[in-house]
Write a protein that binds this DNA or RNA. Structure first.
Lengths: 186, 186
DNA sequence: GTCTATATTAAGATAGAC
DNA sequence: GTCTATCTTAATATAGAC
């Protein structure tokens, strides 16, 4: 008579990994049950709203990672290029050298709840804003900084797609190496 | 007693639209049936291998569009920047101004057949090679041209992700405007 | 808080009539 | 070549015991 019990954090991390790997439609409650050691009924106890509520929790978790890890690194003390390099290192780990997909990519296909798409959009916009605030330190106009920030996000998302489709981490790793330049120059 | 019958081309186009919109896991035979007017059994008559065979047909269709529309535009007579602008115009239409996703993105999540992933990779590599061949006309080394080509693909894929997640065609449209520069300069 | 058991609906797939 | 009908499996979801 086993009572596995999994912590809130472990449960969320397992869900994040699954959804980032297979996307919203590619994850079933059976897969979640297998990955967490919890029976489906227990998953409904934790997330009464079912899969959609789990996806919202995943998006909250990813947003919290941005707010507590990536953004603080950008706002640290020190020379801008060194802080950008630290951000790149955090991203490298977060995406496992390009082997993991981005939630913004794989969870943004049509079909989810309006709340899902609002959360996704808000997270992406917060990320762009954080990059833009960083870029402005290099003396860019707000508009130029916004362009640079969007461009960096475009490259991160796009290189993750290429790395996944080619089974080759190189495109993503080249983008990360470029990141300090992207956010400080123009 | 209706016999709808749909042409090979119309059937494939409907499948391409569905899969590019919802991804592999997001498309069911019921959706395909509804979109094509064919009952599920008829879909199996056309594609005995079921959904996976339909996805392979989608990838063949997309590859053929590349080979018969995009690549010839790049190889046309005329000044390079004008040919690149024509390619951008074709891409704008193909992605419906950024409202449609790329098959390379939405069909590359893990879980498909090995053949699917080989076809996807081959299509993407052919695309990169076509961009690289074009870029070499501007006097770049093979390595530089390859970098420029991959960078252009990164930006196309990434800007499509941003446009989708933000419900805003601007990132994709800016990328297209940039394309002639991307493929002729460095 | 997790379980077993079960209900309900949808998915992928096939048989056989026309 | 398409249909209706059906099969089997898997998905989402809930009830109730412990």
């Amino acid at each position: 008579m086993v009572r596995p019990t999994i912590s809130e954090t472990e449960l969320l991390d397992a869900a994040i990994l699954l959804f980032r790997t297979h996307g919203a439609e590619g994850v079933s409650l059976s897969k979640l049950s297998e990955a967490t050691g919890l029976e489906k009924a227990s998953l409904y106890y934790r997330f009464p709203g079912g899969k959609e509520e789990m996806i919202l929790a995943v998006l909250t978790g990813v947003s919290q990672w941005l707010e507590t890890s990536l953004f603080p690194a950008l706002r640290q003390e020190g020379p801008p290029r060194k802080r950008a390099a630290k951000a790149a290192e955090l991203l490298r780990a977060f995406y496992e050298d390009g082997k993991l997909s981005c939630a913004v990519d794989v969870l943004s296909l049509p079909g989810g709840s309006p709340r899902r798409h609002e959360a996704l959009k808000a997270a992406l916009e917060a990320w762009i804003a954080a990059f833009a605030a960083f870029a402005r330190e290099s003396g860019m106009t707000p508009a130029a900084a916004r362009n640079v920030a969007e461009d960096a996000l475009v490259r991160i998302e796009g290189s993750l797609v290429l790395s996944r489709a080619l089974s080759d981490p190189a495109p993503f790793q080249r983008t990360l190496k470029l990141l300090p330049d992207l956010l400080t120059t123009r």
